[in-house]
Simulated scan of single mutants.
Amino acid sequence: MKHETTDLQKVPKNQYIFMRASQFVLYVTKYELAGKATMDQGVAESIAAVATVVLWLYSLNGLLVGWIAKYYRDGLKPSFPLVGKPKWSDLLMLVAVWSLSSMTLATLTALSGELKTPVPGVRLAAEELSAQMLFGVALEEIERMGIYELFRGTFWAAVWLNSAWFGFTHLASYADLMAQFPGFVLMMPFGTAAFGLASLAITLRVGLFWAIGVHFLVNSFPLVVIHELIVVNYLIFIFSTAGLFTIGIINLRR
């Protein structure tokens, strides 16, 4: 029996993916505007509880197991630079990761309802600088590289599993947001996994201190891009997240 292809299947792959993503965005927007997008609170709390366990496992392996395994394998000298001298292309990458990560975070907080009264526009939002914030992001970057060292030699685990694991941990404290905005269950891990991949690329290319610096700026001095139309915010999220994945993949292949 002859198989007939649809018009969509004849479209080039990159255009086909974009069309499907656009259809998904329009569907989710219509669904949300209809007021139907809710999740049972108990289910949301269960997901958050699982994410909390996953978070502790990530921290335990990233801070302890990964570095112990590295010590017995080849000593404590890291397989990545601590601080390197960036080229102009590296500086552009740092700025791109900061801006795209900020856009991902801003649109997600606006869409999820975490930001109660989002103000449309493009602006820099300076948060309160704190040593606690710097310590927190430094700890996360050290954990990421601990997981990388634990699985070094197995690319998919050191890079992809590492990023996905990091992404899922960010659901640990957001049961209420998941209940009121179910899309958060997918969008938060996806966005943070994209950032984790790009941050890993920064560390391997120019050093751990640069990755910590970019991570700190994303949390403390973000570029906020929010549109008054919900569908545009979804598209901004898709664009910024795809950009982070692209940066990570290109640089990790070098």
Rank of each mutant, 00 (worst) to 15 (best):
Y72P: 03
W210L: 13
F80M: 04
Q15V: 09
A126T: 01
G191L: 02
V185A: 03
L92Q: 02
S46W: 12
F80C: 09
G62R: 00
A138V: 14
G196N: 04
T203H: 09
L129D: 00
S99A: 15
L76Y: 07
W67F: 10
P86G: 06
S101R: 00
R144N: 02
L217F: 11
P189I: 01
E228G: 15
K85T: 13
V25E: 01
V65N: 10
G62F: 00
T203E: 01
G136T: 02
L64G: 06
I142P: 07
V159D: 09
L64T: 06
F168W: 04
V214R: 02
V25N: 01
T169A: 14
V95C: 01
V232I: 15
A211V: 01
G248N: 09
F195V: 03
F245M: 09
Y234G: 11
W165Y: 14
Y71V: 06
G196Y: 00
H3D: 11
E32I: 08
A198Y: 08
S173I: 04
L186Q: 12
V231H: 15
I250Q: 05
Q15A: 12
M19T: 12
R254Q: 12
L171M: 08
G75A: 13
F216E: 03
A96N: 08
V11I: 12
M19C: 05
Y174Q: 12
T241Q: 06
A164H: 00
L134W: 13
L57F: 07
F239H: 06
E4W: 13
L235H: 09
W88V: 15
V206R: 10
F239N: 02
L111R: 03
L150G: 13
L223P: 07
T117H: 06
T246S: 15
D74Q: 15
L139I: 04
I47E: 06
L60D: 02
L252H: 09
L229Y: 06
S240G: 08
G75E: 12
Y58A: 07
T192F: 05
M188I: 13
N219A: 06
H215G: 01
R20Y: 04
G113Y: 10
L115E: 10
G146F: 10
A193W: 05
V28A: 14
N233L: 05
G243C: 05
W67K: 04
V95G: 09
W210E: 08
F184W: 10
M103F: 11
V224S: 00
S130Y: 03
E128R: 15
T246R: 08
K36F: 15
A69M: 11
I202G: 08
W160C: 12
Q132A: 13
F221G: 06
S112D: 06
S89G: 14
T104A: 10
